[in-house]
Design a protein around this nucleic acid. Sequence first.
DNA 1: CACTATATGGAGGATTCCTCCAGTTAACAA
DNA 2: TTGTTAACTGGAGGAATCCTCCATATAGTG
Lengths: 183, 183
Amino acid sequence: MRADARAKRAAVLTAAVDVFTERGVEIPLDEVARRAGVGIATLYRHFPTREALITGAYVQQIGMLCDGVEKLLADLPPDEALITWMQNFVGHVAGRPGMAQALKSVVVSTDHEAAALSHAKVYTALEELLDAGVDAGLFRADVTVDDLAGALSGFSLSVGSPGSQDRADRLIRIFVDGVKATG
Amino acid sequence: MRADARAKRAAVLTAAVDVFTERGVEIPLDEVARRAGVGIATLYRHFPTREALITGAYVQQIGMLCDGVEKLLADLPPDEALITWMQNFVGHVAGRPGMAQALKSVVVSTDHEAAALSHAKVYTALEELLDAGVDAGLFRADVTVDDLAGALSGFSLSVGSPGSQDRADRLIRIFVDGVKATG
DNA sequence: CACTATATGGAGGATTCCTCCAGTTAACAA
DNA sequence: TTGTTAACTGGAGGAATCCTCCATATAGTG
């Protein structure tokens, strides 16, 4: 990709995050293009659909949330680390319209490069957390990374109304209790 | 409401379910109106927004899924009844575009009459299941109906891709194990 | 510097949304 | 049955949004 194209692409993503945060993901895409100082055609070339733009906008943030797993595992026992990490993740999703949707599409598909990269990051993070728990004998051995990813995605999708943040935190705790149950 | 209005309303809902099932919830609403044999204005009068229509379309099905809890509880121990009921629910949501979204809006709000009714049905069903488990000493006592509703909503929202049905079934089983854990 | 593949912007046709209002009809009383 | 009225209906059409096309501009290369 040409350097100018890369810059415009980044500008579009930045603008998209801002606009989505302020006014939701249903906003006309012209607004995003204007905010990015870019023609509407440029936006559509980089992101053919609204969904592609939403996914693109949050891929970076999802990646950042995946860092720091090592630190958590160093400071906390595996079960608490998993709980804390998932709660932190869901906390970041709440109030960011579209981010849960982006997470879901990243979890279920590896269609394009960016999605595949994020998918790998999320799965790697969850795998570290899961392995730590299994190695410590805290988690049952039949739980898969897919299970954790599905739970994370589901809980993220269900936040978005007042009070649902607390509820999501509770759900995560109950779920991880299930992961621990000697079943 | 006048009798003719009630009939048209029902026709719109039937058409909406059909069209949503065939072609997703993003379909132009003109299509729904045409299929229902109704003017577009009539559709908009009964359902001012697309979301209202989606919710309305699935309220009935959600209600039906809530029946039969008694029978489950008669045939199965409370934990298996809860698992079976939730799995059955999520199974019905899969492949019905928009139904998960309808469930979520019904769970989080009681804005209008239809939503309030469905909300009550879902909560009543879950309450029976929860109480049965708590009474039997199988479930921890600090789990709330809200928790179960949130989990059901979250798991429903995360289905919708091949293989996610099985995963949802697994998630429900793990979650209910968490509900049982003696915390 | 010249050349070319690549990227750009915005006009505008196509689609979809959603409101308005003139005409129709169900419900009810006499 | 008939008259009255409040409620309901359909669809035209203005407004908003989508998304493609293509003439122009520019980065990258030798």
